[in-house]
Design a protein around this nucleic acid. Sequence first.
DNA 1: CATGAATGAGGGTTCATTCAT
DNA 2: AATGAATGAACCCTCATTCAT
Lengths: 221, 221, 221, 221
Amino acid sequence: MTTSTNSGRAKPPAKEGTTGRRRAKGTPALASERRDHLVKLAAELFARKGFQATTVREIADEAGILSGSLYHHFDSKESIVDEILSNFFTELMAQNRAVIDEGGTPYEIIASLVRIAFNTLEPHRAAITVMQNDWNYLKGLERFEYLTKAEDEVEKMWITAIKEGQVTGTFREDIDPKLTYRMIRDTIWVAVRWFRPGGRLNAKGLSDHYLKVMFDGIVVH
Amino acid sequence: MTTSTNSGRAKPPAKEGTTGRRRAKGTPALASERRDHLVKLAAELFARKGFQATTVREIADEAGILSGSLYHHFDSKESIVDEILSNFFTELMAQNRAVIDEGGTPYEIIASLVRIAFNTLEPHRAAITVMQNDWNYLKGLERFEYLTKAEDEVEKMWITAIKEGQVTGTFREDIDPKLTYRMIRDTIWVAVRWFRPGGRLNAKGLSDHYLKVMFDGIVVH
Amino acid sequence: MTTSTNSGRAKPPAKEGTTGRRRAKGTPALASERRDHLVKLAAELFARKGFQATTVREIADEAGILSGSLYHHFDSKESIVDEILSNFFTELMAQNRAVIDEGGTPYEIIASLVRIAFNTLEPHRAAITVMQNDWNYLKGLERFEYLTKAEDEVEKMWITAIKEGQVTGTFREDIDPKLTYRMIRDTIWVAVRWFRPGGRLNAKGLSDHYLKVMFDGIVVH
Amino acid sequence: MTTSTNSGRAKPPAKEGTTGRRRAKGTPALASERRDHLVKLAAELFARKGFQATTVREIADEAGILSGSLYHHFDSKESIVDEILSNFFTELMAQNRAVIDEGGTPYEIIASLVRIAFNTLEPHRAAITVMQNDWNYLKGLERFEYLTKAEDEVEKMWITAIKEGQVTGTFREDIDPKLTYRMIRDTIWVAVRWFRPGGRLNAKGLSDHYLKVMFDGIVVH
DNA sequence: CATGAATGAGGGTTCATTCAT
DNA sequence: AATGAATGAACCCTCATTCAT
């Protein structure tokens, strides 16, 4: 895969002469509890207000420390969101690849991919929200190229499955695989905007409903 | 509808003894060509970089003037995006209401609403992009309450039509009207992210394809 | 006297290369009604909000024209306030000098000077308010040196009269003429802050009361 | 008294999810030396140039830091002047109330109030200057309502004492208590414009002179 | 006389980040 | 680990003034 793990611990010698000597002496505490906690707080804020609209001071406030102190844990605001997103993508891609590796009918594969996506909605709500809302901004940054690469990989999985389904006669011939993929993909992720765990529907209900509509349409046959 | 027309032409509360009779005699010149041009430039930038990430200096640069000069035409950055969005919503809502007023079978109504939406994708690409990407931020501002109100109105149109279709036996009983509406709505607007006029598909092709999938599903029956 | 009449019609070649060609072709309409009206409007605003806090746009708004159009009548915001203040000072100084020229006992002179001052409170309310509130700022500008000069002239009138009164035995020997003058002067002008024509007291009532206290004190003798 | 202590140390409404627990544990460090120093520098500038005419950049320059750095200590320019004024008013009102609480003849009370005021002239020169020159502007701001309230309280003290003095026969019946109070009040504060500590007169000399004139008048009896 | 568009300098403020302690 | 002070760049916006039409 391509999902980077450069979660900001060793800043890639970008920008100007950042010395990047932080965490150079053995770097053990990569995933200290404190750090994880901070990431979670930041994720909530990013999700609620957007990445750009959230200030490091707000994150620090939420944690009860001063903004400067955050830089003991992360070397930039970007590296926080990087950590959030790469955590999510690492897991998502692992599961997706597992489905592909396992094989199955196109119908089964598509259904699995959909279920996986809907199942991330709850545990990775914040990450997905950030991805949805701030994609436009983040994709412009070199550091987040792995987002695009992961997307491309998923697209290939889907299109391969759809096309195969058309060949085997499961799926209609008159739909455009790429177009269909995009529609479905967007519909799933965008649900994060209104999906509330604990509400009327859970992830399973959502994906069941969605698969029903997607496979059979809303018209009575 | 409630789409505001408070696009920032008349300066707000008018601090003190200002009698505020500016532009009171019929409010002409509202749409000077210059102004319209500036709105268009800003819309492009907002769409490309996001509302918050776009600076007034960039807008001014694009127009070949100084940033301060923008304030001869608008009283804030917000009022520019307001103008962009309210233009779009005014048109969209007018068309939607016309469909409802005209009547028809639920199937026809839903199809029309979908087509209208896809047809706005090209002429209002920038506005829709802003709506998609910056909604989260803008909805928090009092000034943009009309966005939420318009959304609610559209939701009612859809749900009414879907439910009626279920009653008349056109649509399946086992789908959730609200959930279905949201899925469809988001899928349409989110297409603005990858839809490029002049590309493989035009608005008609897109909506045809979408209606096909939505009504009949992707599985062969 | 020294009260300038350079009310901004011919800008003194200050600052940078201002060409100052305005009103060069005969300059008849020095005191057009339009111009006077504008000065009055500006005076009201300056008095209410302070000179610096009042924008030329507010003045223009009040007059129903655009801010740029003001520059047809005045060549700067300063020249407007200059006109306001010099009108006031010209009149005040003329009356003061008349009292001195006419002669009389020290007691009579002081009483007359006090009455003159209180009598300007109503017709020149705005000018006096500006003088009180914005003196600190205006006195720093070369253009308004005549304010200081006029003040000095008045001070001399007072101190001369007070000292003479002490010599003739009318006024107490144990008061400091300069100090006493300043106290009295300030007390009069500062009344503009709360004096409202049409209220409980008019100018005559005020000056009577003030002369009573000033001459005889508040303690029963 | 009502002198606010909202000197801008705790950031206002705390936009959103900020829990605002900043500085909650006893609010120490409120008066760091650095902060006090900055307030003093600002006060000098405000007094010299006026509040509005003083820029935050000038204050920062004076302190040898960048303008943005000021916002580490204060959250706005207004909160600086607030601190200046509330410091002054807190002290003034405490002293005034002590005089009232202690009691005494009307003559003694008035004399004490006058002396207190003149005595603040030197230590609070800057604050009083700001109060005199920028009152008109500041009183319009909600934040500074406490200024008006304090004024009202002092007015009551004076008027009560004057009226009582008239009843007991100490003060003349034919003076207007409110009017007299205002004259005296303004005369005292306005002295800040020309009073220079270290000059011919100190605060005691000033108040002695003033009490002499106020109580007994300038005419020989 | 007035408009409408623009200038240019500067205003208060924000914010990610740095760093000595 | 955290604080507290500061940086520096940028941000949105204001405003007196100019000028062609």
